[in-house]
């Protein structure tokens, strides 16, 4: 990425949403517990390709990478994840309803 042409640096910021802070916390906790390292996080982020910068936000890319690493580390299976995600989607239409607060 370094040295590529790009436009003006956008300066607007945002307050982190609760779900984004949770993603950040999950990264720190999972890596401190030895499931994977920051290098694994970066490897999957890079494998997602530059297109993901256009289609996903920062913490969307992170949760995708953390999940990939945790599956590879054997923390849970894809079947468990799929079942849980379906269960959560059925709980409600908003993050608050689906996450229980």
């Amino acid at each position: 990425m370094g040295g590529q042409d790009a436009g003006q640096v956008p300066r607007e910021g945002h307050d982190f949403a609760l779900w984004e802070k949770r993603v950040d916390a999950l990264m720190v906790l999972c890596s401190s517990k030895g499931y994977f390292t920051v290098d694994g996080l970066r490897r999957v982020l890079e494998d997602m390709g530059e297109e993901s910068f256009e289609t996903m936000t920062y913490y969307e890319r992170w949760i995708s990478s953390i999940n990939q690493n945790m599956v590879e580390a054997g923390a849970y299976s894809l079947e468990e994840l799929g079942t849980k995600m379906a269960e959560i989607t059925a709980r409600g239409e908003t993050y608050g309803e689906a996450s229980g607060g």
Partner: peptide
């Protein structure tokens, strides 16, 4: 070596 750590 991060090139090893990245792959666990």
């Amino acid at each position: 070596n991060p090139e090893k750590l990245a792959y666990g």
